[in-house]
Design a protein around this nucleic acid. Sequence first.
DNA 1: CTCCTGATTCGACAATCATCTATGCACAGC
DNA 2: GCTGTGCATAGATGATTGTCGAATCAGGAG
Lengths: 121, 121
Amino acid sequence: MSNQSLVESAPATTDGVCCPPLVRAELRADDAEMLAGRFKALADPVRLRLFSKIASYGPGEACVCDIDDVGVSQPTVSHHLRKLREAGLVTAERRGTWVYYRVVPGAMAAMSAVLATDVVA
Amino acid sequence: MSNQSLVESAPATTDGVCCPPLVRAELRADDAEMLAGRFKALADPVRLRLFSKIASYGPGEACVCDIDDVGVSQPTVSHHLRKLREAGLVTAERRGTWVYYRVVPGAMAAMSAVLATDVVA
DNA sequence: CTCCTGATTCGACAATCATCTATGCACAGC
DNA sequence: GCTGTGCATAGATGATTGTCGAATCAGGAG
């Protein structure tokens, strides 16, 4: 089989929330572990720019071929995109020659909710 | 003078926002650098638990003496608290024997806003 | 089939980081 | 003054990470 699947480890919660806001209650150890993984995925300037590029691209989809001005080599871009995939923040789909990336619905909102200070719900 | 000041490098924006949401526009390089620093501060399970402990402690203040069950040694806790200070997420104040930590007002909200998907403002 | 191009993976390297033990500073009480 | 406790710092070390060049895989075109 091909080992170039573009589908990663399928993190536990790809779209839903995980835990109450940080100001609400003390974080459980396993929740902290999971959340840290997501924050770590955004804890790099290159990945942040890639993620922002994808998220702000019209309907939330961007071709890898459009990404070339982040200051690192193309293999490095691919490496960072993989990290974002493994964190469950983006998904990749190959259509013909090119690969298109889009943000996982709800992933950003979940992280935003954890950091929220004015609890609405 | 004492080199144990508890006051760190005074990050640029300790309370305000920095940039539009990631879905809004592509992140600028220097903004990405700055934001990545903040995400990196939360990209560790221990720091997340410390931060959550401080943030959820009544009026948002916690004594270091209350922190002892995160699974790492006391110097390591101090090291992580320093990282949180340097990232502008918490501030420390010595009152007599103990040191009290509190979250920087607006720091969480700013990060949450960057990740927001439903732009209210 | 044979090229050619786009994208991922591999292997290696330097740099950063999380953790520890040992030490030093700040304050309270004697 | 001295002593004890709380917290921060210093130095060292093993692990993780960001980066690259080279090689490999996937598809389209001739």
